[in-house]
Design a protein around this nucleic acid. Structure first.
Lengths: 141, 141
DNA sequence: TTATATGCAAAGGTTTTGCATTCCA
DNA sequence: TGGAATGCAAAACCTTTGCATATAA
């Protein structure tokens, strides 16, 4: 699993300490392959009888976020979710029935809209959030 | 102010009761012309010495939402915001410095992306969230 | 007079803060 | 040794639930 090792190395390179919690968070996010909330990470830790304090988890996760190793996503349900920062900007389709998450790559990445917005209002877009909600194949039946 | 009256009439027509809280929420949202959170509405009520219970406010606002009179927006800061449902689908540009909000109309409304998503994965999009974050004209200086 | 609106108290859920302790570089 | 990691308790914050009372249609 060299992807894991590569991330750890980058964490060290960036001057962050390589801690147990950081390792676990990275491990779970890599394995899950979908955004996880802190609550979900705690459940996974529980299953392994790996009990960490919630506070520490929040803090270490925040360091990973600030360091750019993970990204934060909001699916409008009051929880923040995190995923490995792959560098590729992408979006998600969330099934409102089974909560399954599909990654969506968008070829036309709203550049035109953002350019027009700047021309009209001088608003300089630095980031955007785009998530789709609907029904997945299985739940449509 | 016939826009206010028109909404009230629709509320009654739809079988919802015309309550004090509903009136205030509608009034504030019309006046603010930007999405307001429950907390912000409470502040406005306070300024008028118009003290309502938080719970009632949440409940009445929810009825307005379910009835389609207002819409809910999430700016990823842990609070839900509401605005009058104009029927026109639009998005927002939020200045991360001064928190000002600009409405953004998007001509190409992602139909192509959603169609492709359905072709690829059979995921049927029912709704999407698209918000822009960045720096407004004034804060760019 | 019946359903709805409103109030009050309490709790739920996620996240944050402060302080003490442990551990690693 | 010093700064970071971790734990614990508590609080902050937004939101919801349950039950009682008042009010409007």
């Amino acid at each position: 699993m060299h992807r894991f090792e590569a991330i750890l190395e980058n964490i060290r390179k960036k001057g962050l300490r390589d801690s147990k919690i950081k390792r676990k968070v990275i491990e779970y996010l890599l394995k899950a392959n979908k955004p996880l909330s802190i609550g979900e990470i705690i459940e996974l830790l529980d299953q392994e009888e790996f009990r960490f304090n919630k506070t520490s988890l929040y803090r270490e996760t925040d360091k990973l976020l600030k360091g750019g190793f993970i990204t934060e996503i909001d699916f409008l349900d009051g929880k923040k979710r995190y995923e490995i920062n792959t560098g590729t900007h992408h979006h998600h389709a969330i099934c409102t029935k089974c909560k399954k998450i599909v990654c969506v790559e968008i070829p036309n990445n709203l550049e035109e809209v953002e350019k027009k917005l700047f021309q009209d209002t001088q608003f300089k877009v630095e980031d955007h959030v785009l998530e789709f909600f609907g029904t997945c194949k299985e739940c449509s039946k």
